[in-house]
Nucleic acid binder design. Structure first.
Lengths: 222, 222
DNA sequence: ATCTCATCCAAACGATTGTTCGACACGCGT
DNA sequence: ACGCGTGTCGAACAATCGTTTGGATGAGAT
């Protein structure tokens, strides 16, 4: 698995462990390799070689390869969920507890799409999370069940914003919007780029969010 | 890989072609296991055990594990492309060469969603194709480039149906619709089912197609 | 100084991987 | 009967996998 991606110089801060630079190196290398090549295709040796540490570091610091994967997933997942929850909360505050559909959808769409911005340093995390949805281990799929409770807040907000719609209609449309979000992968962007012969540029996250919001809001306006 | 999935009734009993039956057995077993567990998690021994044939059968009939995967992918991919192209062609005939947006989108959405119908026997093929999009080998990703030429017919039709829209807008919305389609995975349906607490039922393919069409058409109506 | 503890390292472990090999069985045309 | 080709089979191949091991290292506390 050859990769020529610049390594992230920033290490994590404020951890209970004082002297664990190796752990952060492994964490970042693993996330990057997993995001690019997938879980099964990346070996522990690939990770440690990329991180420049000893082979046994993975098992020493994380217990196992799956546990390492799970830890990355949980970290990034809670980060994303918090960003979404914060935006939804702000929307509630701004609109007196009953935000419109577009504000709710924005809280759902904007955070992950902003992560995918090529100008930022969170693209890898975004790709990792998208990939983990389809290739995760059994434990990660169980961790995705708790994601349901997180999604329910968005569903409830939408049910209030559109009380005239039958609830099942709301849920289906959430499913469609999530499909739009999870389709923002490197390979899909590439395919779109060749299909449009270079017309579509994904380097503007704000414009993409607007486009997705227009599309999704129209689907919810029925 | 523990699999407790009932074997399909087709081609299991005494076939007139006794000697070529093994290849079909391997083909079907591999497609089913790949669709359920993913490509990397399924070993050649899993496939041959599921098919009830000798371990060497895969390499003898297909050359390698990757070649087997590629052959399944090519078969199902051309089948799907043909079904879509036929529907698009019929739409052209019905509307004098200038079909409306909804008819074009229907040709894009209906075939794969019909495959996903639990009452049919093509759910496995649909899941396989969806999964191959994210976990495919390098050769398969190259085969997906030719899929672009297939998508271009839909893009051209939409450009004609909406000449007032800037082309890049058309391409982005195609990207969104494809995201809706590719999100129809087992795991995602399950998550939606638990989120809606049983309200959403995916057993009605026709109703799901209508829902997706309504949503997508609204997004294109802007 | 000695003990302690966390960390790192090279080496090896057993298991599993995809693939290959040689032998054997059968149908079929000559 | 023979040879030939196709197909199947058990066995083994080398490679890679995740994980474990025992000892070296070095800083901090006693």
């Amino acid at each position: 698995m050859n990769t020529a991606i610049p390594l992230d110089p920033e290490a994590e801060a404020d951890d209970p462990e004082v002297h664990a630079a190796t752990k952060a190196l492994v964490f970042n290398a693993a996330e990057r390799l997993f995001a690019v090549h997938g879980f099964q295709k990346v070996s522990v040796r690939d990770i440690t070689a990329e991180a420049g540490v000893n082979l046994a570091s993975v098992n020493y610091h994380f217990g196992s390869k799956d546990a390492l994967l799970l830890e990355i997933f949980r970290r990034r997942s809670t980060e994303l969920n918090r960003a979404r929850a914060r935006m939804l909360h702000e929307a509630h505050d701004r609109h007196g507890g009953k935000p419109p559909v577009r504000a709710i959808l924005e809280a759902l769409i904007a955070p992950p799409v902003r992560w995918s911005d090529p100008r930022g340093d969170r693209r890898i995390s975004a790709q990792f999370l998208i990939r983990s949805r389809g290739e995760g281990t059994d434990e990660m799929r169980e961790a995705l069940r708790s994601d349901v409770s997180h999604l329910r807040r968005f569903a409830d907000a939408l049910l209030i914003a559109r009380p005239d719609l039958p609830p099942e209609e709301i849920y289906w449309r959430i499913h469609f919007v999530l499909g739009m979000i999870h389709n923002n992968r490197f390979a899909e962007f590439d395919r779109l780029h060749t299909l449009s012969e270079g017309l579509t540029r994904e380097d503007d996250a704000a414009a993409l969010i607007e486009r997705m919001l227009d599309f999704a809001e129209a689907g919810f306006a029925l």
